[in-house]
Write a protein that binds this DNA or RNA. Structure first.
Lengths: 332, 332
DNA sequence: CGTCATTTTGCAACCGGTTGCAAAATGACG
DNA sequence: CGTCATTTTGCAACCGGTTGCAAAATGACG
């Protein structure tokens, strides 16, 4: 069906190598040859088969984009940024949905079958075992939104979740709340653990402030709502640091339904600053995570690894900051 | 780096064909041979190179998943369903972001370079020229959420947008509104045109009801909000059929900010019934689009086309229905 | 055990490209 | 124009698989 190199070579009356060379940059071809080949290629509607060439070059320009967050709106932004960024660099994202996958080996096998040049793990909840399994299989890996560690085993690009937890705690303290709480995402996610650790570390410095915590089942609206309804039924705190924005919005919905006011009765601070947090009917006070920068940096790091596979692992951490909207009362 | 067929063959002491046959189902291999090969493969950690095999079989199992809707939360659900559905059938989605692309030829070239077996266009706003360009290039195409036409040129799976416009109009009429309006998405999207056509066709039957219309710039929160603020400033209708849910939510935000009440002052009915419409702090009355069924059917159709490329084009249309929540006043 | 049909196996060519090497062409210079 | 360095070109082997065909192996049956 498709036009091949051979046909172009025949039409142009040159060797197959010559055609191949005109389409690989950096190769030696005379202007005259190039013109002849390009003419024939144009007439035939030829475009080179990237997969066939990958067999000899060992490069497919395919990047596995692996995630398990298909119910958190921030990931639509993340996918948008990744796909555009990769495309701009001539790379192609193979999207892999790991929602129901528990065994890293399956994913490794699948990605190896497609000879991806690298894997971007875009998730804050996927067990670190996945990123490591890819690395162990010899595939360049960048774990975006992964856990920062002083001894990173794979490249990590993201934020310092511990520091964010601390910032959230400080924001609540600065506003004079005396009973605060952490309402986290799933307890087994490293992001949840780290945010909680930071939150706690700040709270122990303020024994006068009552602090408690609990966890929602997922980073989702429903989970946030359900957990907040439960908390309201018990003895709610004055203000909550919610694990992320979508959880916060679920919590806001629960508070509203319970005829309580935000921020008067209950204050909320989220994390991510996804587009929706800016929506005027939500107006969530939250911690801004610079996702655009994280994605750009992840892609740059991936490109660097493609050229230098044994690069020493690094962690790229981007600072976050509180963005003030309407769900936390002003400082006294 | 990776283990190849040849190494497995050597270790097992058999021919390369034998190894190949054990890994292609339907091929003739004795039990004894199979055991020998599988043992060697296991020991070496071999998994076949899908891309190399695609060279001779002509099948890559790669499906281009093409979209330009990365700012409409419903598409996160769509991507989730597509990736999982394709994966279950052993197909791999190559995600293509066409947000900034205007020339179908570029996309055709790119997808041909990667020898995708088929293309799913998942968009209600992408110009139909894209789907046609893929088809003309000889690639099986399914246009999900595309325009229904009595003479479809490519396979279409979706809803009857004209009928939906009619349903929305009927819903507004049934509630006794006397001044209603259509607030559409971008005017050049076929979905907008069709929804508007259906809305109008119903309205001409009711000359006593005042009907007007306008268009937002995109199917996005910001666009919906902006357009509704403009309308409120002019002479707003009693109720609006908004082009889709995200537009509706933008409109709701504008109404709220203007200290008007929903549904008392202004009623809203959307279209899609995305997860967010169900969120209790939104509670949008809307028209349910069965996206799960649409995606499943799109995938089934794609699989069918892979086996029978010259299949006669068909349109698969799924019925929609109004789901009652809180943004339209009850019928009198 | 021999005959014959059936199943299994290996050979060799092929899929659509790339690339090292040697030969051919080009061009600079006296 | 001849010489020699440099650039361009084609040949042939290769990347990691698949597959038609013929030969070899198996097994049913008398």
């Amino acid at each position: 069906m498709a036009v091949t190199l051979k046909e172009v070579a025949e039409r142009a009356g040159v060797s197959r190598s010559a055609v191949s060379r005109t389409f690989t940059d950096g190769a030696s071809v005379s202007d005259k040859m190039r013109r002849k080949v390009e003419k024939a290629a144009r007439e035939l509607g030829y475009s080179p088969n990237a997969l066939a060439s990958s067999l000899t070059t060992g490069r497919t320009k395919l990047i596995g984009l692996v995630s398990n967050n298909f119910h958190n709106p921030i990931f639509l932004e993340v996918f948008d940024l990744f796909t555009r960024g990769l495309q701009e660099r001539g790379l192609r994202p193979l999207l892999v949905n790991l929602t129901d996958e528990t065994d890293p080996e399956n994913s490794v096998r699948m990605l190896r079958q497609y000879s991806v040049d690298g894997v971007v793990v875009a998730s804050s909840t996927l067990p670190p075992g996945f990123a490591k399994a890819f690395r162990d299989a010899g595939v360049p890996v960048v774990h975006s939104f992964g856990r920062y560690s002083s001894a990173p085993q794979v490249h990590v690009v993201g934020i310092d979740n511990v520091e964010c937890g601390r910032m959230a705690a400080q924001a609540l303290i600065a506003r004079g709340y005396t009973h605060v709480a952490f309402m986290g995402g799933p307890e087994d996610a490293t992001s949840t653990q780290d945010r909680f650790a930071g939150f706690k570390s700040e709270m122990v410095k303020h024994p006068d402030i009552q602090a408690s915590h609990s966890f929602a089942e997922a980073y989702s609206f429903e989970a946030g709502r359900k957990e907040m309804l439960r908390l309201i039924d018990a003895n709610p705190a004055q203000a909550y640091f919610c694990g992320d924005d979508v959880l916060s919005i679920g919590a806001l919905s629960a508070i509203e339904d319970s005829k309580l006011r935000v921020p008067e009765d209950i204050g909320i601070i989220g994390l991510n600053d996804m587009e929706m947090a800016r929506w005027e009917n939500i107006g969530l006070t939250t911690i801004h995570q610079p996702i655009r920068q994280i994605v750009t940096s992840s892609i740059e790091l991936m490109v660097a690894m493609l050229n230098e596979p044994d690069r020493y692992p690094e962690a790229r951490i981007f600072p976050c900051s509180v963005v003030e909207r309407g769900t936390l009362r002003p400082a006294p």
